[in-house]
């Protein structure tokens, strides 16, 4: 069993964790990064159009450029980075925290005085949204849909509908359209913030209709989606769309698997850990940032909130 000692261990080297790790290193802290995937960058690796805006740098990045930026900085600063390694448990001794990691070579024990949990979130599923009916194939969360299309270069359906309240969903619709899936409609129950004008223009150039103030109630179809039942929230009327694919991109909920071991306090109403304004959890010296901190609909918001709280 390998043992690694460090001051600050950042768990999750996605869009947020990497940036925070870099920032802390720049400020003189001893930092190590862990990442469960082969590469860092998290969700940014899946995106193409969504612009990442970092207030601190006063810069906008395309997702690919942002990932390159992160990779370069990690290299330049010589931050120890453990990829393909999953942290499966957190323990506490009187002096430090122990994070149990596994990878193909075995178990690694990370000993750290400070932990930053940046494990991201999961997109809301049809169950989180109480979309009822049947449970056939053909229902995907937005990022899963992108991952499938990217990885396998195959269409995940013929005719689909995207349910979203955020920019990410607009990108999902555009990209699925490029993959050959006919996206008839993007359905927006309510905007969680002003949607990007650029993405909206791109959408109308691609002949995708945006239908606002509507939502999906039910899924129909035994083996594969056959149709979905929608509701017009203004008119209070239901209507049906004949599609074989439903893509749901309705924001994120924090990943909380890791919080159980140390019994880090959770607010059961918001489904998020209880945090101070500095993002410190109920256990001193454990910080939680990015999409893991609270439910977010927008990535930039999660990113900039965390940078402000942890690096200023």
């Amino acid at each position: 069993m390998e043992i690694v000692e460090t001051d600050t261990l950042v768990i999750g080297s996605g869009m947020c964790g990497s940036f925070i790790g870099i920032g802390l290193r720049e400020r003189g802290f001893r930092v190590s990064l862990v990442e469960m995937n082969r590469e860092i960058g998290g969700l940014a690796k899946l995106l193409r159009y969504y612009k990442i805006k970092i207030e601190e740098l006063g810069e906008e990045f395309y997702p690919g450029d942002y990932v390159s930026y992160l990779k370069n900085r990690i290299m330049e600063l010589g931050i120890p980075l453990y990829t393909s390694t999953s942290i499966i448990d957190l323990l506490q001794s009187n002096k430090y925290f122990i994070a149990i990691g596994v990878n193909r070579r075995g178990v690694i024990e990370y000993k750290a005085r400070r932990i930053i949990i940046a494990v991201g979130g999961r997109e809301r599923t049809q169950y989180d949204l109480l979309i009822t009916g049947t449970r056939p194939a053909g229902v995907f969360t937005g990022l899963l849909a992108l991952e499938l299309v990217d990885k396998f270069h195959k269409k995940i359906g013929r005719k689909g509908l995207v349910l979203t309240n955020n920019d990410l969903g607009l990108e999902v619709a555009l990209r699925l359209r490029e993959s050959g899936l006919v996206i008839e409609n993007v359905v927006v129950p309510e905007r969680s913030y002003p949607l990007s004008k650029e993405l909206l223009d791109h959408l109308s150039d691609s002949d995708i209709d945006l239908i606002e103030n509507n939502t999906v109630l039910e899924i129909d179809g035994l083996k594969r989606v056959e149709s979905v039942l929608l509701k017009d929230l203004d008119k209070d009327e239901t209507w049906r769309a004949k599609v074989d694919t439903l893509v749901i991109s309705m924001g994120f909920l924090p990943s909380i698997e890791l919080l159980r071991g140390l019994e880090i306090k959770i607010d059961y109403e918001t489904k998020a850990p209880v945090l101070t304004s500095r993002l410190e959890s109920s256990i001193p010296n454990i910080f939680i940032c990015g999409l893991a901190a609270k439910p977010y609909n927008d990535l930039n918001m999660a990113l900039n909130d965390s940078i402000r709280a942890l690096l200023h």
């Binding site: 393909s84 499966i88 596994v102 990878n103 193909r104 075995g106 698997e257």
Partner: peptide, 20 residues
Amino acid sequence: INEIDKLIHENNDYGEIICP
């Protein structure tokens, strides 16, 4: 963790978490 370590040494696919 000792058992997990041993298991991964026998079959390193046990070191790759697929479903978090």
